[in-house]
């Protein structure tokens, strides 16, 4: 044996030793690993944390989060087996959603676990101080009779910005992919407004925050439940009432109406039922309402508390609620 083979062997032996030294931190015995989708809004994190605690502490599972900013990519990831459970998906108004449900739900590669229990409401909002003023901040009511779309043109100058003048500015739905249909409403209702699409929710909140802290007029597309409502007092403007003629599943928005309720849903791997029936039971029965979730989201986003701490507090106070979700 010559020198280099010896060294090679010694090297191998050292590597093996090192590996055995570090590989010690193995996985504890558990019934399996469940992969949750982690989206980038807090509501999704809270739902996930509640179910995670149930699975890890009451059913002896391990939970891993797969981060993916929302979007139809989650469908693809579920089919591929990268995600087992995804919480609180907002349906949006995009016709693509029907295509996805047809494509993935239809062939049974993704299972629809049911509604979250939340009721989503979209609309055009203005700050309350525009209507009633705010004495504590020294803001006067600038549009006391503004309550529906019919008065918007009267006040368009209030909403105008350098970029939109002489028209008023409407901060439209920031995500084009949702196809919320602001443009169609502005056009068909004959509003002298320019819908501005900012591209991300972040930009939208930043504009909202900036305008609100300075007490400026603002017309913005927003939705509930959302943490901003806990910080800012916003009033939803009335739009023509929603009927079934307003929206077409294929073509999207046809008439300028108010938005219908959105029912966010949970979905995930179609094979979960066979692989881990007890997990399947929990995620199918999980349900949370606007009020409960908003309270927790407020604690996390506004008071900057830890998600786990907030969730545990809620669980301690609502044991009878989550006990019922666990399998018998």
């Amino acid at each position: 044996m010559n020198c280099s083979t010896l060294i090679r062997r010694l090297g191998l032996a050292t590597a093996a030793l090192a590996l055995s030294l570090f590989a010690g931190s193995g996985v504890a015995d558990s019934k399996g690993l469940i992969k949750f989708h982690e989206a980038d809004w807090t509501g999704n994190l809270i739902n996930g944390k509640i179910v995670e605690i149930l699975l890890t502490e009451h059913l002896d599972y391990e939970v891993e989060y797969v981060f993916l900013p929302a979007g139809p990519a989650a469908w693809e990831a579920i089919v591929a087996g990268d995600i087992d459970v995804a919480f609180e998906f907002w349906p949006t108004y995009s016709p693509e959603r029907h295509q996805y449900i047809a494509e993935y739900g239809g062939d049974g590669s993704v299972e629809y676990f049911g509604e979250t229990g939340l009721v989503g409401k979209s609309g055009w909002y203005v700050p309350r101080y525009m209507l009633e003023g705010d004495e504590s901040r020294g803001i006067e009511a600038t549009a006391p009779d503004l309550e529906s779309w019919e008065q918007l043109n009267k006040y368009k100058d209030l909403f105008a910005t350098p970029e939109t003048a002489p028209k008023g500015r409407l901060l439209a739905c920031p995500i084009p992919a949702w196809q919320a249909g602001d443009e169609l409403r502005v056009e068909k209702l004959g509003l002298d407004f320019h819908p501005v699409v900012l591209g991300t929710e972040v930009a939208q909140f930043a504009e909202l925050e900036a305008a609100y802290t300075r007490g400026e007029p603002l017309l913005v597309y927003m939705w509930e439940p959302h943490w901003t409502h806990a910080l800012y007092d916003l009033v939803k403007l009335r739009l023509p009432e929603y009927t079934d003629e307003c929206f077409d599943a294929e073509a999207g928005w046809v008439q300028p109406c108010d938005w219908p309720d959105e029912l966010p849903y949970n979905f995930g791997s179609a094979t979960l039922k066979d692989r881990h029936p007890d997990v399947h039971t929990v995620v199918r029965s999980f349900s949370i309402d606007n009020e409960q979730q908003t309270a927790m989201v407020y604690e996390v986003d506004v008071n900057e508390r830890d998600v786990e701490e907030v969730v545990r507090e809620w669980m301690a106070a609502n044991e009878d609620v989550w006990r019922a979700w666990l399998p018998m």
């Binding site: 970029e163 501005v196 900012l198 991300t200 972040v202 930009a203 930043a206 900036a210």
Partner: peptide, 11 residues
């Protein structure tokens, strides 16, 4: 930039 100039094309 977002905080100071808002969300818009100028930002």
């Amino acid at each position: 930039v977002l905080m100071f100039f808002g969300g818009n094309v100028v930002s």
